[in-house]
Nucleic acid binder design. Structure first.
Length: 290
DNA sequence: TAATCGTGGCC
DNA sequence: TGGCCAAGATT
């Protein structure tokens, strides 16, 4: 099966339809891109934008963040969710200060060696901050490729094959690689969405394998998210909120979420947060990590 | 490989 | 209203 040229229409579409997002400013910098990618891991764009501005105003460089205790990163993270990302971003900043002279590395393997950076984030930084040619594959891109190339309604679970598939869509030179990567993501976010895709305004509809096949329901391998209400995650989130709001003052362990319906679950949440390094305990008091 | 990990908006 | 979804990484 020959691969249709998707890059050309994607580039043209992106030039006219890309959202004006802060990290797309030409002088935004590698640190800003790195912070934005951490925040964007599973958190919607609209919630990230204001927090990102605050973060970069307070810590304009990795070294600035590295001089602060992790507690400040966790507190500044606020309600973005998955607070371990704040901890990992702080660790990454320390590693960048110590191992890379305070400069966000450009090499993908060096980026992958940083705490909290995986296949997606490493390549996103190398491509969007430095303009190098690598495949950048997020959940949007996987869905676009699954439909346009694979003819399936939904992507398979993430796999190294995704990187190969995206590579074949990139133009040869470095110049447009970043645009095509960003365009595939943007198309998935705005047009080729998970629910109710807007195929009537899709720039590659005329070469979409899923459309050509008549939009078959190819099944759905996704697993349902666990219920949040009443979960350990909810208990952990409640504990973290109490400690964030109290910081820098510590909180007595017995009074953290005192009215939680299940005391055993509350204790389990506290223990797991300590194990994760998100909180610390001393003399029966809980506080954010110093 | 599969489970785990927050939070909030949307339909 | 409750399930689905959101620029993933780690273990």
């Amino acid at each position: 099966m020959r691969m249709p040229d998707l890059a050309t229409p994607l580039i043209a579409w992106f030039r006219h339809n890309a959202r004006d997002l802060p990290w797309r400013a030409p002088d935004f910098g590698a640190w800003g891109v790195l912070v934005s990618e951490f925040m964007l891991q599973q958190t919607p764009v609209t919630r990230v934008v204001p927090r990102l501005e605050e973060w970069l105003t307070r810590w304009p460089t990795p070294a600035a963040l590295a001089t602060e205790p992790p507690a400040e990163a966790v507190r500044q993270w606020a309600n973005l969710g998955y607070p371990r990302r704040a901890l990992w971003l702080h660790r990454a900043a320390v590693e960048i200060a110590e191992r890379h002279g305070g400069v966000v590395p450009r090499d993908v393997d060096a980026l992958l060696a940083l705490t909290g950076i995986g296949d997606y984030t490493a390549r996103a930084v190398a491509v969007f901050a430095y303009g190098d040619r690598h495949p950048v594959v997020d959940t949007n891109t996987r869905r676009v490729i699954a439909r346009a190339v694979g003819g399936c309604a939904q992507p398979n679970p993430p796999s190294p094959r995704d990187l190969v598939a995206m590579s074949t869509l990139l133009p040869d030179g470095d110049d447009d690689a970043a645009v095509v990567n960003a365009a595939a993501m943007e198309l998935g976010a705005l047009v080729c969405t998970a629910r109710a895709p807007r195929c009537e305004s899709c720039p590659i509809a005329d070469r979409c394998a899923w459309r050509a096949a008549g939009y078959p329901d190819t099944g759905d391998t996704r697993r349902r998210q666990a219920r949040y209400e009443g979960s350990d995650r909810q208990a952990r989130g409640a504990v973290m909120k109490v400690l964030r709001d109290a910081a820098p003052e510590p909180v007595a362990a017995m009074t953290a979420i005192p009215d939680w319906p299940d005391p055993r679950q509350r204790d389990r949440a506290i223990d797991s947060l300590i194990a994760d390094g998100l909180i610390e305990a001393s003399d029966g008091l809980l506080h954010l990590p110093r």
